[in-house]
Write a protein that binds this DNA or RNA. Sequence first.
DNA 1: ACCGTCTTTTGAATCGTTTCATAAATACGT
DNA 2: ACGTATTTATGAAACGATTCAAAAGACGGT
Lengths: 340, 340
Amino acid sequence: MRPASVKDVADRAGVAVGTVSNVLNYPERVSARTQEKVQRAIEELGFVRNDAARQLRAGRSRTIGMVLLDAANPFFASVARGAEDAAAGAGSSVVFASSRHDARREARYIDLFEEQRVQGLLVSPVGSIAARVAELRSHGLVVVLLDREGDPQLYSSVSVDDVHGGYLAASHLVETGRRRIAFVGGGRHLQQVADRLRGAEKAVAEHPGVSLEFLPTEELNVLAGREVGQALVQRSRHLLPDGVFCANDLLATGVLQSVLLAESLDVPRDIGLVGYDDIDFAGSAIVPLSSVRQPAEEIGRTAIRLLAQELEDPGAPHEHVVFKPELVVRASTGTPGARP
Amino acid sequence: MRPASVKDVADRAGVAVGTVSNVLNYPERVSARTQEKVQRAIEELGFVRNDAARQLRAGRSRTIGMVLLDAANPFFASVARGAEDAAAGAGSSVVFASSRHDARREARYIDLFEEQRVQGLLVSPVGSIAARVAELRSHGLVVVLLDREGDPQLYSSVSVDDVHGGYLAASHLVETGRRRIAFVGGGRHLQQVADRLRGAEKAVAEHPGVSLEFLPTEELNVLAGREVGQALVQRSRHLLPDGVFCANDLLATGVLQSVLLAESLDVPRDIGLVGYDDIDFAGSAIVPLSSVRQPAEEIGRTAIRLLAQELEDPGAPHEHVVFKPELVVRASTGTPGARP
DNA sequence: ACCGTCTTTTGAATCGTTTCATAAATACGT
DNA sequence: ACGTATTTATGAAACGATTCAAAAGACGGT
């Protein structure tokens, strides 16, 4: 049975379709008596507005689309929560999709959201999507990039200084006496990874005698970290890094698990470990993780704010908000100078 | 500038609108020459289909809506991932929204999805939404409930035997010598909480001399666990529980943090701790957490399968899949008999 | 009863896509 | 060259909500 339409409601209430629409959208224009009749008809028929029809007429939807890198990473869950709260305050809804670091999945969801004519799009992009964003913009869609700074001509963005974050992490490892640093993270094509690595390289360059090694992974989750960790612990002692910096806390958690499983090795004694994001679990890891904190919820809230600004005044110049990350020191790196 | 429509494409390509539509939907019906003309026009104009119009015509969208209890809980992220994979295999997209254990937010998102005429709805409900589901069903919307068994007349569901899970957890605590058990979890109005508690009660009842105490929390996250933990450690020793079972791993993680911060207390020596869900972080907690494992991704996949089944054959009887949870023993409960 | 003002209601037109009956074009057999 | 079969292309109608100019109704004043 086809769902009821305004026409059905109008017939049953004995009024015109325009009146039903007015009851729904401008009740103050309709007499109390008529409103009541219409309301009753709506309830009797179980009428639910058809959003597709509304949207078609309005030319635009009331939802905001958000494409996240990885919904399974609590960091992004926090960003999403911040965005959701801010949007709810402004009367919009946010729907999410997770690209899982896969450019094709990302493209699919961006297409989907564009076809849905969402109000705007928040994207934490997998690779370079400058071209795609330019296209979206030329179609009139407002896009805010998350966790990625870029062409100020094209879009607004909210990001965190990843180079600085990488620098903080690696510097800290060096300062706690580490000399052979390893950076664990997905490929260099991921900008977050590339930037954090760049920051680490910079820190290492400032200290002669300190080496930096890059250990790429397929994915950026706990399992991938565990695999890297297993490979590490099988190395002969003189090839083993004494400091490991992971591109996120999931990887760090996995590395930690593997290293501790190797009975002869200890964190922070033999390996100092730093993660990234400072998710809730970092502080309660088997050895509490030092980590680089990003203001996740604030990133989400800010992104919605920038989006709202651009929707209101499409001509306004794009804004780029860059947050500073912050190093949180915990047991996984020991205390400076505490090593022999 | 208004986005290009099929009409615009048709004009530019010098064909009829129906032909453009055919190029998009039934290319085999269109000659190669015409296809080429149309494709060129599409590219030149940057034409993107308007999903609202398609949907309006089709009467139904191509996406599946999913309302989760808490996107920040890695367990639900895994369920979502399973669902997404299964749906992608069937050519549908899944969009998510997080109710965060708030019935009003849940209602808002369900309304939104209903107005969007989604293909179907997956919901892990906050409270009892039997009435709302009945209404949705009567409007012809297919609903599958997650993590909740219920009226077999109304809907299909995928759940895990939470009573059994609670029983497993509490039994294990008792078997490792605990006598004063505390159950930590949000209010009894949350069915998962109520069921797990019921299972625990059953286990305790089988062992005379063992007591069970219920410690409700506002939320079900790490912070809430930390707060309960802080309250616990301030108790005088004879009122302190020696076994704590948490309704999920987030709570358990928080409790663990607080207990370990109290220098005089140790897990598992003074308190045995069991969580629920066995998220990736449970195994790498400061003291690896014993936990009750649920097959998260499989729950998501199964839900999509049931949904697809019902869409295909609306008359088919509703199916209720119930998975069995599984206890994973780790250090946080020590080994049986290892205590004085 | 009539006029002017203000409130309420009406319903055709519109948004962009798909469908489908019909028309046009093309190919094929004799 | 002609008729028939087959392949392509056409364009009006439909989906359901909103808009808005115009009509209808209500009311007070004379």
